[in-house]
Computed example of a mutant assay.
Amino acid sequence: MDVDAEDRRRRFEALAPAMVDPLRRFLLRRTDPDTADEVLADTLLVCWRKVEQLPDEPLPWAYAVARHCLHNAQRGERRRRRLAAKVAGLAQPGDVPGPEPDGDPAVEAALAALRPADAELVRLWAWEQLTPAEIATVLDITPNAASIRLYRARQKLAERLRKNDAGAGHEGSREGRRP
């Protein structure tokens, strides 16, 4: 093994252990456990191949890689589902359901009502606890754009939650009224 290969190996071995658990949590929040493990392996492979490009704080960069790997896996799964549906002749391509959300139903409903890009911003901020600068790295946008978009997405989410809460909390209330 030459010196460069040994340096690459040492650098990867120093950085990878701290990335594995946060990346696994990131992926588990977005997909099922089996897919998360496969995408985690793909992500770590990309990190190994590009170990020289890893920044000093590699986690936001690795989140971006994981996000791309997950999108690739999801595209592949949609292709497999469409093909299976076509071969079986049982369903149209859009009829095959995706994974079920497993969080707070009110928050899940509010996130689902947002544009996908806004929902992803909120998830990166709330679930992964990233700063706007780190979110910018993940999404390949400027830190200023990330900050502005995050602010707007949080406002939209709060609005959705208020609407959902107001509608559910006051519909059947007869408190303070005479029958």
Rank of each mutant, 00 (worst) to 15 (best):
A5G: 09
E6C: 02
E6A: 00
R11Y: 02
F12W: 00
E13Q: 04
A18D: 11
V20M: 01
P22G: 09
R24W: 00
R24F: 04
R25S: 08
F26D: 02
L27H: 10
L28K: 02
R30P: 06
R30A: 10
R30F: 05
T31G: 02
T35G: 04
T35A: 05
A36K: 00
A36C: 01
D37T: 02
E38R: 12
V39R: 01
T43S: 05
L44T: 07
L44M: 09
C47W: 00
C47K: 09
C47E: 03
W48A: 10
W48G: 07
R49S: 02
V51M: 07
Q53D: 08
L54H: 03
L54K: 02
L54W: 07
W61L: 12
A62D: 00
A62N: 02
Y63I: 15
Y63F: 11
V65Q: 00
V65G: 01
A66L: 02
A66E: 12
R67D: 13
A73E: 07
Q74W: 08
G76L: 14
G76T: 13
G76C: 15
G76V: 14
R79I: 12
R79L: 13
R80L: 14
A84V: 09
G89I: 06
L90T: 10
L90Y: 11
D95V: 07
D95E: 12
G98R: 13
G98M: 06
D102C: 13
P105T: 14
P105I: 15
A106K: 01
V107F: 04
V107P: 05
E108H: 07
E108I: 08
A109E: 11
A110D: 13
A110F: 03
A110H: 06
L111V: 05
R115C: 04
P116E: 07
P116N: 05
A119F: 06
E120T: 13
E120H: 11
V122M: 10
A126Y: 04
A126H: 10
L130A: 03
T131I: 01
P132H: 01
E134M: 05
D140W: 08
I141E: 06
T142A: 09
T142P: 00
P143K: 13
P143E: 12
A145S: 06
A145V: 12
A145I: 11
R149I: 15
R152N: 04
R152Y: 06
A153I: 02
R154D: 09
R154M: 05
Q155V: 11
K156V: 01
A158H: 11
A158W: 07
R160K: 08
L161F: 07
R162G: 06
R162E: 08
R162P: 00
D165R: 14
A166G: 15
A166Q: 15
G167R: 14
G169R: 14
H170Y: 14
H170C: 14
H170T: 15
H170A: 14
E171D: 07
G172T: 12
G172Y: 01
S173W: 08
R174E: 15
E175Y: 10
E175L: 13
G176P: 01
R178I: 11
R178W: 08
P179S: 15
